Simulated scan of single mutants.
Amino acid sequence: MKRTTVLFLCTGNSARSQMAEGFLRERAGDRFDAQSAGLAPVGLNPLAVQVMAEVGVDISSQQSKSLKGFLRKNEAQYVIFVCDKAEKSCPEIWPFATATMCWPFPDPAAVQGDAENRLEAFRRVRDQVRESIESWLATDPESSATAAHKSQTMTCEVD
């Protein structure tokens, strides 16, 4: 059985979208193909790797990817924007998705201050991302995706 593809989009694909990809893969990787990408990828943030490891999720092998690599190659059933900028910049890119959602988390990489302040910001966002993933999984999204695909088939060309 083909897994439902979920694409998490963000601006830099360095922290929030990477955490979401990691949590979904860890919690429900047998049911979902978790992916992430960014409008302007900047590389995987080491603090994201560190705070995810603290809760037992290894994202160290994930890579920061460009949204361009997913165009015409990935029919994501769900597209989840994890920052306002990505949602405002590209909501029409995935019109064939069953659903697009916006979960606007603050950018932990933008936090200034000492190492402990920055680490705490990453932990707060990590916990928010985990809660959002768990809440979304509790809504039984696979049933929604299956029903939507059975009742409506859409194709779309992206220039």
Rank of each mutant, 00 (worst) to 15 (best):
S36L: 12
L7D: 00
Q152A: 11
S135N: 11
A147S: 09
D107N: 15
K85F: 10
V82A: 04
E87A: 15
S135T: 13
C156H: 11
M1N: 10
D30P: 02
C102K: 09
P95C: 01
L137H: 10
F81L: 02
R31V: 06
A20M: 02
R31M: 04
E21D: 05
W103G: 08
A145C: 14
V125S: 11
K2A: 11
L137G: 13
S132P: 00
F122M: 11
I93R: 01
S135F: 05
T139F: 07
G56V: 07
E26T: 07
P91I: 08
L67T: 06
I93L: 12
A99F: 00
E75I: 00
S14W: 05
M1W: 06
R25F: 01
E26A: 14
Q77S: 15
K68D: 05
E54F: 09
V55I: 15
A109I: 09
M19C: 08
E120W: 03
A109V: 11
E134T: 14
S61K: 13
G12F: 08
L137I: 07
P141D: 10
F70P: 00
V125L: 07
T146Y: 08
G29N: 03
E116N: 04
A20D: 01
K85T: 12
S60L: 07
F23P: 02
Q50D: 15
A110Q: 14
F23G: 03
Q128A: 11
A97E: 04
R72I: 04
T5I: 10
Q62R: 00
S66A: 13
A97D: 03
L39E: 03
A121E: 10
G12V: 04
S89H: 03
N13S: 02
F122Y: 15
P95D: 04
A97G: 07
F122P: 05
C90A: 14
R16M: 01
E120I: 03
L137D: 11
Q50L: 14
K65Q: 12
L71D: 02
R118E: 08
N117A: 13
R123Q: 11
N74K: 11
A48S: 14
S66K: 01
S64T: 06
R72H: 13
R130C: 03
I59W: 05
T155Y: 01
S60H: 04
P41W: 06
T153S: 14
R123V: 15
P41F: 05
S36N: 14
C102T: 15
S132T: 13
